[in-house]
Design a protein around this nucleic acid. Structure first.
Lengths: 363, 363
DNA sequence: TTGTAAGCGTTATCAC
DNA sequence: GTGATAACGCTTACAA
């Protein structure tokens, strides 16, 4: 490790060039320079050009702190994600940032590690920074959060869910409806013996909760409600997908379809199935959620729900930019998901599994 | 899509509570309130408590723009990553953010999409925002970048590489040495027929370039230099890992070891090998780089290089915090990587290959 | 059309 | 130990 210590360059040593310097060089008043920058159309073209030249010459840039102080606007948005480790959030953040950048906004990022207490602290810190808008994930938050946001009078939007909760507008998909649809699809394939693997740890993850609800309701309505032991609770790691499948099949060897609330869990489940010598989808259908890049590349490719993360990010940016400028904004934005049927699902094959199926589907 | 438009709440409508309000309520001068906040130890305890109570009562928070204007410090760091889609960057960013948050700093995030021109623009925007420090990735940048940074007199550090380039200190691993070690390891296993799959698209990716260099140099020194057709250039997608392996084996059917500069490429290569009926590691050894979560979960688990992304992020934070405060900082920080030997590598089995290959093709 | 000048909210430097 | 006061760099009435 190269540790030769040198003294760091201390902050701005050369005093920053300011508007007054430009004004002096251009022989105009600071106000004119400011106008050239902010309302070029009201400055005489000839003068404007001269000023602009000097601005470029001195490579002058405005001090954003001073601007913010004067205008009350930071041109800054904050986002708090549970974690960046999940590609789905990373993708949304990236899209958000790109769109904001186009509009001259900059993005503060913070992460809560799925800890609502910490989310509140980060929000506090963001608000103190004077952000003009805030992006959250999901609808499950600490009590104080709403008061904090209201007091700061900062526009807010929550993402990856579709229903406004507690007055906070949302942009995202209907998670419950998505897993309902997935469940129905599997039912139509002929499956009767289901299992669910859900990343409902921690409990604050309301997206996964909704996904699990969708599965449970669809099956209840179909008259084959899930028993508690048919629901394996996990976090979002691949390893837990593995152990969850093992546990599920241990308790319910007749399972023919496993619905996971996350691709990562599904991929773990697939890996375990392979290890157990179970053919997918021959002996066991497995489904995921999110449609991460890897899903399509699995062997077999994973049937899953595609979540429009980039659109969510862009939409959140647009929402906030409009809200800040006082433009009309929707109460919430429901984005479509897509059920992507690939090769990890198929009709169950009666007879081939330990347990008899009265299934009528042909192969 | 729920589109009922409502009028957005416009910016701060209630005037923000300021230091003067607290001062009036507490019957002290604004200066005292400021001191309570910034140097509590020099204020009479009794007075201090009273002021603090009123601060809490009004839930007063300091205006960061005004503070920044006065102090010249924004307590803000910026980072520009090529993309957030790569887990390795997301992990580093998260660690960076966590450490900064502990120290009262907030992180601006921007992404360049591997476009150096865009990196420069984002940097410009960050500097205008008055950031106190900047984190970059890699050592390959636009010409103007250095001048910009120097002029702004902002401490900077580049990450995921270990050598300071052009006066910009670095924190990360020695990528070239890592692949060298990987290559040597495979050589010791007995491999002679190598192939490399490198994500050297786009060319600005100097980390991958260094990784490829490591492979090439190690093999040159061993007297078995790689032919151009033994090097497949790719981007960083799994799909390209697949096609790269196919092309490689097409041109060089006798290949027994494939070194990839990225886990994702390696996983793609493994998937393709399986599809071609090639046993890994029996017929073909495959290695990755990064040690993403999935690597250990593959079947077989992937031999790879573990990159300490979280340490890089934390280290970058510490570096900048020290640099900003004028504390001594190292010229660069070389972090150790780890060669993680798992089951995707084994000694070559001469003679067994050609036959299998044919069988695989015919299927 | 351009210049003058008054703040924006905070903190540091002075007096007291 | 505490209070008045003067910046920090910019924008915008208002005046010219």
């Amino acid at each position: 490790m190269d540790k030769k210590p040198t003294t760091a360059p201390k902050g701005r040593q050369q005093p920053r060039v300011k508007i007054e310097d430009v004004a002096r060089k251009a022989n105009v008043s600071p106000a004119t320079v400011s106008r050239v920058l902010n309302h070029p159309e009201i400055v005489r073209p000839e003068l404007r050009d001269r000023v602009m030249r000097h601005i470029a010459d001195l490579s002058y840039t405005r001090d954003s702190a001073a601007r913010a102080l004067k205008s009350g606007r930071m041109r800054t948005i904050g986002i708090i994600v549970p974690t960046l480790a999940l590609g789905i959030f990373a993708e949304g953040v990236e899209a958000l940032q790109n769109r904001l950048s186009e509009s001259g906004y900059t993005l503060f990022i913070a992460n809560s590690q799925y800890d609502q207490r910490r989310e509140l602290q980060e929000l506090q810190s963001l608000i103190e920074r004077g952000i003009d808008g805030i992006v959250l994930v999901g609808g499950s938050h600490e009590r104080e959060l709403r008061a904090l946001i209201e007091q700061a009078a900062v526009p807010v939007i929550t993402t990856y869910v579709s229903k406004a909760v507690g007055g906070i507008p949302a942009i995202g998909i209907d998670n419950e409806s998505a897993t309902r649809e997935m469940t129905d699809y599997l039912r139509r394939l002929g499956h009767v013996h289901f299992g669910a693997i859900a990343n409902v740890v921690p409990a604050s993850n309301d997206r996964s909760r909704a996904r699990l609800d969708g599965i449970q309701r669809a099956l209840s309505e179909a008259g084959i409600p899930l028993k508690p032991t048919q629901i394996i609770k996990a976090d979002y790691s691949l390893a837990q997908g593995r152990s969850a499948l093992r546990q599920l099949l241990n308790d319910h060897p007749d399972t023919t379809a496993v619905i996971c609330t996350t691709d990562t869990l599904a991929i773990g489940a697939m890996a375990e199935a392979r290890k157990m010598g179970l053919a997918v989808p021959g002996s066991l259908s497995i489904t995921g959620f999110d449609d991460i890049e890897l899903a399509a590349q699995m062997d077999p490719p994973l049937t899953t729900i595609s979540v429009p993360a980039a659109e969510i990010g862009r939409g959140a940016a647009d929402y906030l930019i409009n809200a800040i400028s006082g433009s009309p904004v929707p109460k919430s934005v429901l984005l479509p998901y897509r059920l992507v049927m690939r090769a990890s699902t198929a009709p169950p094959r009666p007879g081939e599994r330990p347990v008899r199926r009265q299934q009528a589907r042909d192969q």
